[in-house]
């Protein structure tokens, strides 16, 4: 059973991302939204954790990334999706866990 996890908090000011990563199983997807998109950039400790997390798909909501001016800092291997893509992702997974 594949879970879709969403994280909406900055990894630098909250433990939410770490908690999510610790509980995400192989085959699941972690979608970064709102202030959670800061995890999707390069050059910091969180980027290393994402790089080392095998078997988990990472995605980021493009509109939230663009709003924060960080498109050029996006890490490799993180899929950018739009709102339609978000909807599709919800449908494609068995259930959604929103880490608040």
């Amino acid at each position: 059973m594949a879970l879709l996890h969403t994280v909406n908090k900055s990894p630098f000011e909250s433990n939410t991302f770490n908690t999510c990563l610790g509980l995400a199983k192989q085959g699941s997807t972690i979608l970064l939204i709102e202030d959670g998109v800061y995890a999707a950039t390069t050059g910091h400790s969180v980027a290393e954790k994402i790089k080392n997390a095998s078997g988990i798909t990472f995605a980021v909501l493009g509109p939230d990334l663009q709003a924060r001016g960080l498109e050029s800092k996006l890490a490799d291997d993180i899929k950018v999706i739009d709102y339609d893509g978000f909807v599709n992702m919800v449908v494609e997974h068995d259930s959604v866990q929103s880490w608040l």
């Binding site: 663009q66 709003a67 001016g69 960080l70 739009d82």
Partner: peptide
């Protein structure tokens, strides 16, 4: 995270 307030290229259209 306050430093993120000053990033250039912010575009909130979407």
């Amino acid at each position: 995270d306050g430093v993120y307030e000053l990033t250039k290229g912010q575009n909130t259209d979407a």
